[in-house]
Amino acid sequence: MASFDNNPLARSQQNFNKPARFSEEEWQARIKLAGTYRVFAYLGWDESIYNHISLRVPGTNHFLINPFGLHYSEVTASNLVKVDIDGNIIGESDWPINPAGFTFHGEIHAKVADGHCVMHVHTTPTLAVCCLEEGISYSNFYSAQLYGKVAWHDFEGITLRSDEGARILASAGDKPVLMLKNHGPVVIGATLAQAFSLMWLVNRACEVQLASMSMGKVIRIPEPILQGCVADSLNFDPRYGAGEDALAAMIRVVERQDPSFKY
């Protein structure tokens, strides 16, 4: 394994020019994805060296995913690993990928037409709600925007077996959010920003649900209001970037702290 310099100042002084081996489109995708990994670390959505965000390289059937062994705060544009639909590494990489990381990601990328970005986390609130028989309670501002957008998949253990990928895909159906019971959420986006916006909604919905239910009975929101919230949500409206502005703002936050993800 190659050594990795964890000194943010030293890394921030390096040259961020595009390496010749990457096209301009791939390099920009790498920078944006690496920035998003840093945003996840900033928000506390990281899980040691585990969990994943995978993103299609524009115009190809190749995908970028985090190097297995690095914390999200160590991910950079150049050390992201490029893989094919079966998880085979394309080109050179100093790092492997987590086998569990692409079991269902690959299936989604292969079969969902607009499944260009897939995210999976184990944050405490989302995992806790995945363990509830009731699941998501459509009783707060955030969950209201997810009404009719969430599917569920029964727990089968650690996602190492390729045959589970097909079952996960079947469980997801046409829904962009899949709650893996006893495990954690998966979101599917046409873009990195849309997937981020969905994950933001899921995480905040679960945070508020746990807080409100700990105090007593929640106020249920009538179905017509829920349907209106989904229709009005900027997170699904391409006219407003479907989350592009929100993700860009968060990447600016982490860039001010440490711009080395652009290397």
Results as ranks from 00 to 15, higher is better:
D5H: 10
M199Q: 03
R56S: 00
Q14F: 03
P125T: 13
T103F: 00
G115E: 05
D232V: 04
A166S: 05
K149S: 06
Q145T: 06
F40P: 07
E107H: 07
Q257D: 11
S197C: 08
L146E: 10
K175P: 00
D174I: 12
G87H: 01
P259N: 12
A249T: 05
A110I: 10
H71N: 05
Q257W: 12
M199N: 03
F68M: 07
E164G: 02
D86A: 07
S260M: 13
S143P: 08
A205G: 12
G35P: 07
A193G: 02
G59D: 12
I97Q: 01
N6L: 14
N15I: 12
N203H: 07
K262E: 09
V186I: 06
V186L: 05
N61V: 15
Y72T: 06
V218W: 13
D46H: 11
Q209N: 06
D232P: 12
S233F: 05
L43W: 13
E207S: 09
Q28R: 15
A41V: 14
P8T: 05
D46V: 12
S233Y: 02
I90M: 10
D84E: 11
C117N: 04
G157A: 01
A128P: 09
V230T: 06
R56W: 08
V218M: 15
I53W: 01
F155S: 00
G59A: 09
E207H: 08
W45E: 00
N140A: 08
A29S: 07
S12K: 05
F4Q: 03
N79A: 06
T191S: 06
A242E: 13
K217L: 12
G101Y: 10
N6G: 13
Q13R: 02
A113C: 07
V208E: 14
A249S: 02
F16D: 12
L247W: 00
E74W: 03
L132Q: 14
V112D: 02
Y72R: 04
P185N: 06
N203Y: 06
T36H: 10
P67C: 12
L247I: 07
A170Q: 14
I90Y: 03
R38T: 14
F155K: 00
G115A: 02
A172S: 10
H109Q: 03
E255F: 14
A144W: 01
G173R: 01
M1E: 14
V118R: 11
K149D: 00
V254C: 00
S54E: 10
E223K: 09
G228F: 03
A34N: 01
A34K: 08
P96Q: 15
S171H: 02
A10L: 13
K175D: 05
E25R: 13
F16H: 03
L198Y: 00
E133L: 05
R11S: 06
S12T: 14
G216S: 11
A205E: 14
L146Y: 00
H116Y: 08
T103E: 01
K181Q: 08
F104K: 04
S212E: 14
W95K: 14
C117I: 01
N7T: 03
D237W: 07
G148H: 13
G135K: 15
G173Y: 01
A10Q: 07
A113N: 12
G106I: 03
Q13D: 15
E207C: 11
E92R: 11
G101C: 11
V230F: 02
F22M: 11
D163C: 00
N51V: 14
V253H: 07
E156A: 09
H120V: 09
